[in-house]
Structure formats: structure tokens, C-alpha cells
């Protein structure tokens, strides 16, 4: 079982869109896939039409008082499941704090699922907190949607430094350009620039596309209702590249 996290310090960059669409691509490939919606706002749960609520609240779940498996729900795609968000996840830092080894806690919680799933995608809330620390330890790779601006590249460097800092087994960093608008000069310059060419970022690029925005109305991955769109095909390309990189 591989664990991949859609993660970024910044909000609104396409993490949730990435998690939902990549999960759908993985499911298409026949992988048994689980999305864990870690964001108290529950956007990923919403896209899968599942109520953002866990029975008994997030605290018991995070402390390991209730097995994750009991809270998992099937999506509309047989073999693609969701562990829903809960509003109480906004206290997840405190809930982790009281466990024996907070940064290992997510790893520990996910461990029993390793026979059930081939892939777990974590849709993280934006920020850098104890939860993110735990994600860095649990995940095999961090998929970081990056809008092509100078600032975001600098943030990426800082993140890389931070993730690499401590000696433990930590996630590999796999950033990719997100919401790219090739009409914008800056986007073009950065996407075609040195950083990108040095292989720091994945090759696949997710364009800025209204199709992706419309997911909020359709409440389904783009591959379902706009399979031929450029956006859907860019997610497929991203998926293939990620799959290759993490050896799935």
C-alpha cells in the first residue's frame, strides 16, 4: 500500500481537485484506492457526495479508539472508497498531541488498512502544523500543486528543506504545476524555466480550466463526465507519472 498526500502550505492551489481526480485515475487502473479527506471543510467528501462526518467524531478516530475501517464509505465507484472529513478535524493537532507518538500516529492508524488498499490519498488542509508533520512521516510522497509564481517556487524550496531536515523516513517531494494559464507571461516563463527543467517538478502540468471548477456542480471527478477534456487528460498524465515515480 502506497500513501500519497496532496499537500501544500498555501490554500486554494488544487489539492482537493488533484486528490479526487487522481483517485479516479487510480481506480480506473484497477487499484483499490482510499481517499482520506483530512480537511475539516470536507471538500473532497463533497465531491464524492458523502456527508463530511465521522461517527463519534474525529477525536476518537485520531486517538485510535475506533478503527478507521468502520468509518470508510464507498464512493460511486466500486473499489474507490472515502474516509470522510469531520468538522472536528479542526482540532486534529490537539488530538494528535495527546497520543504517544504524535508524528507516527497517522502511520499507525493507516497500518491496518495495508491489505485492503493499494493506494491511500490524503487530502490535506493547507497549513504547516503537527498534522502536516505526521503526514510527512506517513506518506511515501507529497504531491504539491504549485501555481507558477516566483513566490511559490521559493515556498517549495523551504518546504523541501523542512521535509528533508530530520533523519526519519520521510516523504519524497513531488511538486507539479497547477492551475497553469499559458496566456500569462509569468506562468509561461516559470513553467518553461530552469527550475522546471532541472526536474524539480513533475512534467505533467494541470491547466487552469473551467471544467475543473465545474466539478463543484457535477460533484464527480472530471474523468467521469468530461473524459475527453484537456483537464481530464492532464490528470491522467499526472497520474501515470506519479505511478511511475512511486513504483505502483
Amino acid at each position: 500500500m502506497k500513501i500519497l498526500a496532496l499537500y501544500s502550505i498555501k490554500g486554494g492551489v488544487g489539492k482537493t481537485a488533484g486528490a479526487v481526480n487522481l483517485a479516479h485515475c487510480a481506480w480506473r487502473d484497477g487499484l483499490r484506492t482510499l481517499v482520506w479527506d483530512l480537511d475539516p471543510q470536507g471538500a473532497a467528501s463533497f465531491y464524492f457526495r458523502i456527508r463530511a462526518k465521522v461517527k463519534g467524531g474525529g477525536r476518537k478516530l485520531i486517538r485510535g479508539k475506533r478503527p478507521l475501517i468502520d468509518q470508510i464509505r464507498g464512493t460511486d465507484f466500486e473499489g474507490l472508497d472515502l474516509l470522510p472529513a469531520d468538522f472536528s478535524y479542526r482540532h486534529m493537532d490537539q488530538d494528535l498531541e495527546v497520543t504517544r507518538r504524535p508524528v507516527r500516529q497517522l502511520t499507525q492508524l493507516l497500518q491496518p488498512l495495508s491489505d485492503e488498499y493499494d493506494l491511500v490519498l490524503l487530502d490535506c488542509a493547507p497549513s504547516i502544523t503537527l498534522v502536516s508533520e505526521a503526514v510527512f512521516v506517513a506518506a511515501d510522497a507529497l504531491l504539491v500543486p504549485t501555481i507558477p509564481t516566483t513566490l511559490s517556487l521559493r515556498t517549495l524550496d523551504r518546504l523541501a528543506g523542512h521535509v528533508a531536515k530530520k533523519g526519519r523516513r520521510r516523504a519524497e517531494l513531488l511538486p507539479f504545476f497547477s492551475m497553469v494559464d499559458r496566456r500569462k507571461k509569468l506562468h509561461r516563463r516559470i513553467c518553461d524555466g530552469d527550475e522546471a527543467r532541472r526536474g524539480k517538478l513533475l512534467e505533467a502540468v494541470i491547466p487552469n480550466a473551467t471544467i475543473v471548477e465545474q466539478m463543484g456542480i457535477r460533484r464527480a471527478p472530471v474523468g467521469v463526465w468530461a473524459a475527453r477534456s484537456a483537464a481530464a487528460s492532464s490528470y491522467r498524465k499526472l497520474w501515470r507519472e506519479v505511478r511511475e515515480r512511486v513504483g505502483l
Binding site: 458523502i50 468509518q71 470508510i72 464509505r73 464507498g74 466500486e78 472508497d81
Partner: peptide, 13 residues
């Protein structure tokens, strides 16, 4: 073979 109706559950429902 005789046809079948197969009821398939969705996890959590």
C-alpha cells in the same frame, strides 16, 4: 446459465 440478480453493497451504507 440461469440469469441472476446481484445486490452489491456500498461500504458504509
Amino acid at each position: 446459465l440461469p440469469p441472476r440478480l446481484v445486490a452489491v453493497p456500498v461500504r458504509g451504507f
